[in-house]
Design a protein around this nucleic acid. Structure first.
Lengths: 245, 245
DNA sequence: CGTAGTTTTGATGTCAGTCAAAATGTGTGG
DNA sequence: CCACACATTTTGACTGACATCAAAACTACG
């Protein structure tokens, strides 16, 4: 089957409602699918794109997970975020036409490529698509604000708890368990994302585990007490269960 | 003159090239101006909008400066950013239709209101406007990433230096001096934005001043050595001038 | 001139970073 | 299948940068 003429990628994609097609009519989704390019799968540590590359496309995560990060002139990295299926990558290139960060695959994964020029054209034809694109951009901005909030004034424990809750919610939205999942990223990536060291991440996880709030076994995490985890993020009332021991 | 029928707000605005009209034809700018509502000026500490309010409009800064912040359930604030003339506020509402943060005026200032529904309509008619809106959204995302980078792994001194450089660049782009300006925000706001305390901010400013890199007198700041300030942000080579004394 | 708000300065405490090493896991070749 | 090397994660001891607590100095404004 020739993917250029008849492409029903989006119509049959189980992630459609989490991705750009959300809210569009079937015929509009078909139109959208015509501009989608399917790329070959990426392997662990493979780059989707690099900081400074020309950015002519956005990429939707089809499967697997990805990490975006900025490298400064010293070669030091700062992880900006993690992307799960249904999420759109490359939005940072929309200002200048160049990617301001790099993206690598955390595990084997696949993406859908959306050429920006085609996407913009289509947006003028399909108002619903424009609305949806703007909504996705607004979501990215709102989520970046949450990250700023996270890094601004939170203790190591609160950061760790927030990180776990973020993943919990996102896995839940994908239809997976929101209390039991495998981390696709290394401790190093988590630490770097949270503005902590790997030792601190390790200790905080051990501590949450010791209090029975979670169970951790390397990459596998189980949340035993969601409410307690939430209360760590925003300690409205003093917590006895999680103070130092 | 009736502002509803003939509104040349944007055509005569000296900020047009920093704002949405950038790159549009004169007739298109006229079209854009028809949907712009001029609001009465805001006084110091007056709210433009509050977290949770219905978000039907974006707001462009015409004059003055503004602070956006999120309040969590404990009532603690986290300042997300500062807005100067030509910058667009309210983009965080585009996902859900509600503002996820609050905005207050730091000094007397004026804004242009852009109803989102009208703006979207106009975008389907004027492709250049759509491109420009998407670009502005991309800029906000890129700038938020910079903030994440800032808060992630930087020392108090590097945060302070980055803050001053950010302002320097933005004032420069506005045609003001990039080495001499007045801070419209209080120490408290700076500290909260940078994830520090007011005492630390005060000490860092005093320290930069002691080394002759800047001169500070309360709200008034003068940058004496831009290069040194830059080298603090990304210490590629060890700095002797700014180590502890 | 007095009061309230903001900023600076000083003394002390603590959370997370750093350094170091052990424990655990992963992969490869014999 | 085991032995070895290498990567990742955990644990422990110590240190330091920034927070906290407290008070003084400076501004502004009636």
């Amino acid at each position: 089957m020739d993917s250029k003429t008849t492409n029903n990628t989006c119509s049959v994609c189980r992630l459609a409602d989490l991705c750009l097609p959300y809210g569009l009519h079937a015929t509009e989704v078909q139109q959208l699918a015509t501009i989608v390019k399917n790329k070959r799968p990426l392997r662990v540590d493979e780059f989707l794109y690099s900081q400074g590359d020309e950015g002519l496309s956005l990429f939707a995560v089809k499967s697997g997970s990805f990490r975006s990060f900025i490298t400064n002139s010293d070669g030091l990295e700062q992880t900006i975020g993690f992307y799960l299926p249904g999420e759109l990558m490359g939005l940072d290139s929309l200002q200048s036409g160049r990617f301001t960060c790099s993206i690598v695959a955390l595990e084997t994964g696949a993406v859908c490529e959306l050429p920006v020029a085609h996407l913009k054209e289509l947006c003028t034809e399909i108002p619903g698509l424009q609305t949806q694109l703007i909504r996705v951009l607004g979501k990215e901005i709102a989520s970046d604000h949450d990250k700023i909030l996270l890094l601004g004034h939170r203790s190591a424990k609160a950061r760790m708890a927030t990180f776990l809750l973020m993943l919990s919610i996102r896995y839940g939205a994908l239809g997976f368990s929101s209390t039991e999942f495998n981390l696709s990223m290394r401790r190093h990536d988590i630490a770097n994302f949270l503005g902590l060291t790997i030792e601190t991440v390790s200790r905080q996880l051990a501590d949450l585990s010791k209090h029975g709030i979670i169970s951790v076994q390397r990459r596998s995490v189980q949340i035993n007490n969601l409410d307690l985890l939430r209360s760590i993020v925003e300690p409205s009332q003093p917590l006895s269960a999680c103070s130092a021991d």
